[in-house]
Design a protein around this nucleic acid. Structure first.
Lengths: 228, 228
DNA sequence: GTTGATTCAGTGACTTTGTCACCAAGCAAC
DNA sequence: GTTGCTTGGTGACAAAGTCACTGAATCAAC
């Protein structure tokens, strides 16, 4: 139950679609959900687990990834504020096991909904349905995109594209990330990432130091991320 | 509209969950849907297309696959009688583009539903919702499984597992399939499939002739499909 | 500061997989 | 037969993953 008006306000701000719902629905929502805080690194769900609640993220981000038996991993998508892990939803609604891992990438505040309410609101609330379906579709597309990248794109291009994408979100010139973390992002291994980065460095495209990557020639990187 | 009692019967037989719906719902369904027949090889949906109807398959199978710019492809899943392409559903419900290709693998008879009805029934019919969610969850798991296989499993093991899986569905000792078709199934290339098969042949695990693969040592194949 | 542990990165040898170019065998139509 | 198409085979190479090991940077404790 959430009764603090300020917390209610935060929830509505993070999930704007709720403002389009009837007063009664919001009242029920406030009554039925709970606020949780999870620390960085907290495992939310492991491969094969059965989900018992749906988290709606207020702050922080979750990371959903696949883990191979050899220890390699790949990020499938992230759950940002205003979103929810819809794979969890589909598992709840169908009673299946969750097919991946989910972990708190930063400290997460979330509102958790029980399966019974998830199901009920699918039946009673049009905006809720729209919200959930929008998320399902966008996750599906993300996962399909990952599959496409893994199968059909060269690693150096994927890496360049990823670094360029980060640059837009991170302030400052450098990207603070280890080779291991990059490998886990892209589903590769540390050694290979190191090699590819070294190669790019030798071509003057970027500079690397322990835990930091500085992009030097961004136009060239953008060009080569698109086509060999 | 479907008014032939025999066709109505076939529809109910293929989609047993419909028997759990009220008479009125089934009447509306029969009134709103149309029966279509599609020939083998008919392209149902291409990458980036916007779906305008949801097909419920009565007979035949559809194949959903990703195609890379280099021409390589990989099968994501198949749509069998009694199923539907729920990625299409999610595209319809969210207005997004379809992120893959879909083609008729055999002649397909399907009942097509318009987006308006797909949406409306999600609101009004509990069994319809259950059906759709069950499918979404199982597709998600299939696609996650493909990703897992591509990233973390060796090709020879995937190939053995696939051949063993086929053996259960196909009568007779041999599997009639070209190396090219196997490559498209697993997201590899013909040359590599040829090499791997040749290798297995040299180890006495199977025998290949043009368009035909005969599994010889099934216990050994089963063993090696599990672990190197 | 120095020491030691820990994390992070680099390297070489090797395997697996994908790509390219080209050729050969099987099959069908004429 | 000959011609043409489909299917499969091969070798050389490139890209990526694996393994074992080394070295370098960082940090905490002393």
């Amino acid at each position: 139950m959430i009764d603090d008006p300020w917390q209610r306000r935060r929830l509505l701000d993070a999930f704007p679609f709720l403002r389009a719902t009837p007063e009664a629905f919001r009242a029920e929502l406030f009554a039925q959900v709970a606020l949780v805080r999870l620390p960085v690194g907290q495992l939310i769900c492991h491969d094969g687990a059965h989900c018992t609640q749906l988290p709606l993220v207020l702050t922080g981000t979750g990371r959903v990834y696949k883990l191979g038996e050899n220890g390699r991993e790949i990020t499938l998508y992230r759950v940002h504020p205003g979103e929810s892990c819809v794979v969890t939803t589909s598992c709840i609604l169908s009673g299946r096991a969750f097919p991946a891992f989910a972990v708190c990438e930063s400290a997460v505040e979330a509102v958790v909904v029980r399966p019974a309410e998830v199901r009920r609101w699918m039946a009673t609330s049009e905006p809720w349905r729209e919200y959930i379906f929008g998320l399902i579709a966008s996750r599906l597309q993300e996962v399909f995109g990952v599959l496409d990248a893994v199968l059909f794109q060269r690693l150096d291009q994927r890496l360049m594209a990823y670094l360029l994408g980060l640059r837009e979100t991170v302030s400052g010139r450098g990207i603070h990330m280890t080779h291991q973390a990059l490998a886990a992002e892209l589903g590769s291994s540390r050694e290979v990432i190191s090699r590819v980065l070294k190669d790019m460095e030798s071509q003057g495209l970027l500079r690397t130091t322990r835990g930091l990557i500085e992009l030097l020639d961004i136009p060239a990187l953008e060009l080569r991320a698109r086509e060999g």
